[in-house]
Nucleic acid binder design. Structure first.
Lengths: 219, 219, 219, 219
DNA sequence: AATGAATGAGTGTTCATTCAT
DNA sequence: AATGAATGAACACTCATTCAT
């Protein structure tokens, strides 16, 4: 959302830096409890200059939400569209989600905590995007049910269990924690899938299939 | 926890009402974004009178946290100390936790979001209590492993999965949602236990045992 | 200044106690920086009851001023009217003034610091009384000049030197300091009189005359 | 002592103006009884802009104290270190002190009345500086005793007499009073020295020596 | 591209005082 | 004789934002 018509080449770079720094502060202290002055101090900019880059405080929040939702939705749409077993796709989506969470812990804090400070159109768009992500997950779960892999579940509740398990991770994950996204995804999915699966479905080869998928893709 | 030396009979009642109202506002808007003036308005009290009851804004936060943590820890300690199968105790603890979450959704919002605005001793005590609760859960999981019911898990990660699943519920639960605590607990535990259990462990009679336990207790 | 028509026997006693306690607080923290709540706490009274005794905060200040000025003016008038050498009377007045200062250090702090918070008639009366005291001192100095004991001085400046020397004592005196009023009076007067006296005047027997005066009076 | 990192050329000037205006208000009404709003009104600045310059109310008090103590201590150290008769140095110090008092009456009011509202390090530093000044005076008095000019006095009491006489001047001096610092210093010192001196010491030529010193210095 | 200066509403909190009981 | 409850203005201070330069 660059503001005035003409900008030098450094503008966008500096802008992104400022958003990064703001995300860190918001994550640590909360959006409402973080002052513009503080951001300016961390950015090494006087308040006037800061506003040249950010437009408004709420705008920073919008950008941070976008940095989470844009890659998340893009990846989710891509994975959901793959021509693969829905359980495999769920496993891939799980890992992508965890990668995003672990890579941008501070952004996720803000995303989870402070989206309610958005107003008007910003808020509406955000909620729509969140619902879209939820729908993608839920549709995959339904596909898995229809494929016979999962037993007959309340689809919405299954989706919520999936998201509970994943989304709450930001609350305790550390920037350099002992567990990476792949490990967590394996563990989470093992739990969830063993809970969701039909008696007849054998999930034991899932990780093998993930590996093989990655090889195909990487090639 | 009355503040000035003496108080009339209505004091504590009104005080609890105010804390209720504050919890609602904090849950909706966040602690930092909610003004004392707003609370006074909702309470129908001028700011001076408000402070007569609350002492300070942070004190309101403390009270709300206590309303969550005191019953939670009391119940958790009691359940952990029961002379029952650890898996049964986990299931009971799960339901108690969900009952608390669903009964006091706004308090939980504040508990989950705004504990970081506590300072000094208040914060220290809160973190200690949170850790105690986590330890109770983790110890139950270890007991379940030692009893042979659960396979060999990373205890901490299992505890985090348990809490992820439960604690994130506040994010989407509605005050009069379609699912009650018992149903959610059954579902969550079914998923978790099927993920955690040893191949040899048969969880099918768990709900039966829950019912029988309740009858014994209720009698 | 008792308020309602009828009062029990304990009223005035308690009232004086409260004024004492207020004087201590005002002295330590200043009138403006001391709250009514604080006084009530020290007095062991709720605010409502406190007001039953004190009428208003400013009224406390008035009472404290009176406790200084009434005995001071009474004593000063009496001493000035004695049929004695003016230098002796100055020496007696000096000691009386210092006795009052040392006996009621906290009242004097308030008297010196906070009289400017009085308004209207209270302030006018106070200033009048202060001027009366100054006039008594100045008249004694003039008498001493006219008697030939003191050389020709600017009377007002001499009076101000006298009061500078005495009145500033409260700034460093301690409740149980090493010097008593008699000693300080002797020292201050020795300095002042040696500075004010005529070359012909011999002050060496002054303390002797003080002693002899006291014996006559005491008898 | 500018607060934020960078400031324009007018900043320090305006800042000093505001401190001036605050000193006047504090002197008239007392520090505790003067509101920030009032200062802003006098300065013609909204509260936000005011804080841009002052940092905090207590900071204003610190600055005012510094404006008294810095020149006072600098001058006192210089005078104490002169290679002159200690009595002459006392006389010079007396005049310097009175010059400061008369030149900055309102600052002195605040200095004398409101230093107790300073907290923490500010207060500690202030008290240390006050003690340093007292020590300089007392050391000069001891020197004068050792030189034989003064008789054997209690050094601390002599110092307190000296300061009583001088420091209390602010209580009655007027901005355009009839007496200047030189005149008051001559009078005060005449009184004090005639009280302190040895019988053998002749103080009659002191003013002559002051004049000669000033000529030497001025040349 | 950036600054210093300013605003005015808003922050949480304390104040002296009142009054029905 | 004393209380608990209430008020509303004032307190020191911070806020996001603007704008001439």
């Amino acid at each position: 959302m660059p503001r005035p018509p003409g900008h030098g080449p450094g503008y966008e770079i500096k802008r992104q830096e400022i958003i990064d720094q703001a995300a860190q502060l918001f994550a640590k202290q909360g959006y409402a409890a973080t002052g513009i002055a503080e951001i300016g101090q961390v950015a090494g900019l006087a308040k006037g200059a800061l506003y040249y880059y950010i437009g408004s405080k709420e705008n920073l929040l919008v950008e941070i939400q976008n940095r989470v939702l844009n890659p998340l939705l893009t990846a989710a749409r891509r994975i959901a569209g793959l021509d693969e077993d829905p359980v495999l796709r769920l496993r891939l989506l799980s890992q992508t989600l965890l990668e995003l969470i672990l890579a941008r812990l501070d952004h996720i804090w803000v995303y989870e905590h402070d989206y309610r400070h958005l107003r008007g159109a910003n808020r509406t768009r955000l909620l729509r995007q969140r619902r879209e992500f939820e729908k993608i997950v839920q549709d995959l779960l339904v596909e898995a049910m229809e494929s016979g892999a999962f037993r007959k579940l309340n689809a919405r509740l299954a989706m919520l269990q999936f998201l509970n398990m994943h989304n709450h991770t930001y609350q305790w994950a550390k920037p350099d924690g002992e567990w990476d996204a792949e490990f967590l995804s394996r563990e989470y999915c093992a739990t969830l899938i063993s809970g969701f699966r039909s008696p007849s479905y054998d999930a034991d080869d899932l990780e093998e299939r993930v590996r093989s998928f990655r090889e195909r893709e990487g090639a």
